[in-house]
Amino acid sequence: MISDNLILERGVSAGDAWIAVAPENVHMALGALKEEGYRLLVFLTCVDHLADSSGQFPARFEVVYELRNMETRELIRVRAFIDGDPPRIDSVHDLFPPANWDERETFDMFGVVFAGHPDLTRILMPDDWVGHPLRRDFPVGGEVVEFSEEHETWQTAPEKA
């Protein structure tokens, strides 16, 4: 089992087991989990907790790794909270090859910098795009829906941060 000193916190959310690790230990923790049999990185993503009312999150960005053990059919979610501008965390593409594109996508969408990634460039947005669309402070954008009279318009922008 992954040594307890790596784990900051553990819990179960809606039936899914999760552990929280310090961002600097992510590579080590994931390596240990891989040794344990969690060989498949199901997905890697980020959650922006900007303006979360509960205030239970230690940092703005939460990087989430979902791992699966294909023998025991167990899932485990690893979370790491990071802050900073830009937020930084170690890349795990050498442990889990599929993380390559996932990390690029997370960089593209949230601006999280994955240290050690071989080719950390935008993957979904055009190369000259400014901003990271999935951050909560990035406006949804779009246009006013056309009607024959100028009345109400559809507002998609989130509540002000």
Partner: peptide, 25 residues
């Protein structure tokens, strides 16, 4: 309720999963 959950189904192409995070709103 606040929390996060991941559910996956086997689609025609493979694992089609959805990870949702709720902040209780």
């Amino acid at each position: 309720p606040a929390g996060d959950a991941y559910a996956a189904v086997e689609s025609g192409r493979g694992e089609n999963g959805c990870y949702v995070v709720s902040d209780g709103t």
